[in-house]
């Protein structure tokens, strides 16, 4: 199973804000597995979708050199189930960022309806956890391109977001658009 819980970024402002969508399909295994007979998208996977949206937003600030991991779910409130046929929208804003971590607040929506409110704390792994990157460069770049980050991304000056040079090394680039 692909561990993608968002389909595509719809906006990405470096260091500030990101939005993404996920289309919920009855063909998603998770829908049936979670509550047989009453298919709905598990709330835990909505948190994961927010973690992916916000985690990439946080990691992009230093060109993906920080090893960002989800450390804590400070808040997760859900107002309605997410059903097959829904399009779930994620909105994530960086509230605070330090050398050792970041806090984001996020909301999820279906149409005009507020579906969820989520607050996450991310930690940046220090040297005591070794120095291996969390993802090989080519996997990471492939994921960012697939999610359309560079199609919609803007840098702090409002210019199109550029792929970090280190991810473009020839031996690391396996996927192009």
């Amino acid at each position: 199973m692909r561990w993608f819980w968002i389909d595509r970024f719809t906006a990405f402002e470096s260091g500030k804000f990101a939005s993404a969508i996920k289309n919920i399909s009855l063909s998603d295994e998770a829908l049936d597995d979670y509550m047989p007979g009453r298919p709905n998208h598990p709330y835990a996977l909505i948190i994961e979708g927010m973690a992916q949206t916000a985690g990439l937003l946080v990691a992009e600030v230093n060109h993906f050199t920080d090893r960002v991991v989800l450390a804590k779910v400070g808040k997760a409130i859900f107002h309605r189930p997410v059903l097959n046929g829904d399009q779930l929208k994620f909105y994530a804003t960086i509230e605070s960022r330090r050398d050792d971590g970041a806090v984001i607040t996020g909301t999820t929506h279906i149409g005009d309806q507020l579906q969820g409110e989520i607050e996450l704390t991310f930690a940046f792994l220090g040297e005591q956890f070794g120095n291996r990157p969390l993802f090989p460069n080519n996997d990471l770049l492939g994921m960012l391109l697939t999610l359309g980050m560079y199609d919609v991304g803007r840098d702090p000056n409002g210019q199109p977001l550029k792929i970090p040079e280190r991810l473009l090394q020839p031996d690391n680039l396996t996927k192009t658009k």
Binding site: A71, K72, S96, D100, G101, V103, A123
Partner: peptide, 21 residues
Amino acid sequence: SIDFLDIIFKLEKAFSISIDR
């Protein structure tokens, strides 16, 4: 230990200060 990161974020915001972990 991970709560201290969260607590620091909240204290920095509440008091408008910078805290070294």
